[in-house]
C-alpha cells in the first residue's frame, strides 16, 4: 500500500478532527436543551442567527482563503477550531517561522507553524481554564456574589488586559515594517484613512481590508519591479 505523504496525512487527520469538533460543538446546545428540557423555537434561533450569518459567514470564507496558505495545513485545521486566528494564532505562527528562518508553504514552515499554533492553543486554553478556576475559588473564599466584584478586585490590571493587542502587534509590526518597509506603507495608510472616516470599524472588518490592500499593493510593486529590497 502506498504511504501517505505528510501533507496528505495531515489532511486525513485534520478532517477527522474537524468532524469531531463539529460534533463536540453541536453537543453543547443539544445536551443543554436535553438536560434542562429547554427548547427554543426554530424561528427564534433563525431570527438570532440571520444577522450573525450575514456578517460572519462571508468573513469565514474570506478567512479560510486568506489565512490557510500562511497557516499551513496542520495550522489551519487547528486554528479554525480554537479561534482567535488573526489576533493570536497567525502572528504566533509567523513569528515562529521567522525565528526558525523557514518560509510559509515549505514543509519546514508547515511543521513550525503547526507546532507554534498547537503550543499557543494549549497555553491560551489552559490560561482561560485556570482563570475560571481562580475566579470560582476567589468568589467562594471571599463570599463574592457575582463576577463584577472579581472584576473590581483586579481592576489595576485592566490597562494591561485592554492593551495586549497593541503591545503584541507593536512588537510584530516593528520587526515586519523594518524588513518590508515599502509594502507596509499603503496598507497602514489605507487603514488609518478608513478609521478617520469611521473610527468604530472593528478589527474583524479591518483585517480582510488590510490583507486585500496589502496583497494588491505588493502585487503592483512586484510587477513594477519595486520589490528588490521590499
Amino acid at each position: 500500500m502506498k504511504k501517505r505523504s505528510y501533507i496528505d496525512s495531515m489532511h486525513f487527520t485534520g478532517r477527522i478532527w474537524m468532524v469531531l469538533a463539529l460534533c463536540v460543538m453541536i453537543s453543547v446546545p443539544l445536551f443543554f436543551c436535553i438536560g434542562n428540557n429547554a427548547w427554543p423555537t426554530l424561528f427564534s434561533v433563525l431570527a438570532g442567527l440571520g444577522p450573525i450569518a450575514v456578517i460572519f459567514y462571508p468573513t469565514a470564507v474570506i478567512e479560510v482563503i486568506a489565512f490557510s496558505p500562511l497557516l499551513g495545513v496542520g495550522g489551519t485545521y487547528l486554528s479554525f477550531v480554537s479561534g482567535n486566528i488573526s489576533d493570536l494564532k497567525l502572528p504566533c505562527a509567523l513569528a515562529a517561522m521567522e525565528s526558525a528562518d523557514v518560509r510559509p508553504g515549505s514543509e519546514e514552515g508547515e511543521v513550525i507553524s503547526t507546532i507554534s499554533i498547537a503550543a499557543s492553543t494549549i497555553v491560551t486554553t489552559t490560561v482561560v481554564t485556570v482563570l475560571v478556576v481562580v475566579i470560582v475559588v476567589l468568589m467562594r473564599v471571599f463570599g463574592m456574589d457575582d463576577t463584577s466584584q472579581v472584576k473590581s478586585t483586579i481592576s489595576f490590571l485592566a490597562p494591561a488586559l485592554d492593551n495586549a493587542l497593541p503591545a503584541l502587534f507593536g512588537a510584530l509590526g516593528a520587526s515586519y515594517f523594518r524588513k518590508h518597509f515599502r509594502i507596509s506603507v499603503i496598507p497602514v495608510a489605507v487603514i488609518l484613512i478608513l478609521l478617520l472616516f469611521n473610527g468604530t470599524l472593528a478589527s474583524g472588518t479591518l483585517v480582510p481590508v488590510g490583507v486585500v490592500v496589502g496583497l494588491l499593493s505588493a502585487h503592483i510593486m512586484y510587477k513594477k519591479g519595486w520589490l528588490k529590497n521590499a
Partner: peptide, 21 residues
C-alpha cells in the same frame, strides 16, 4: 512578498485601531 504583505495587512488593522480606533 505575498506572505509578508498578507501579514502586514493584518498587523495594519490592529495598529490602526491602536492609533485611531
Amino acid at each position: 512578498a505575498m506572505s509578508a504583505a498578507a501579514f502586514i495587512g493584518i498587523i495594519s488593522a490592529f495598529i490602526g485601531r491602536a492609533l485611531a480606533g
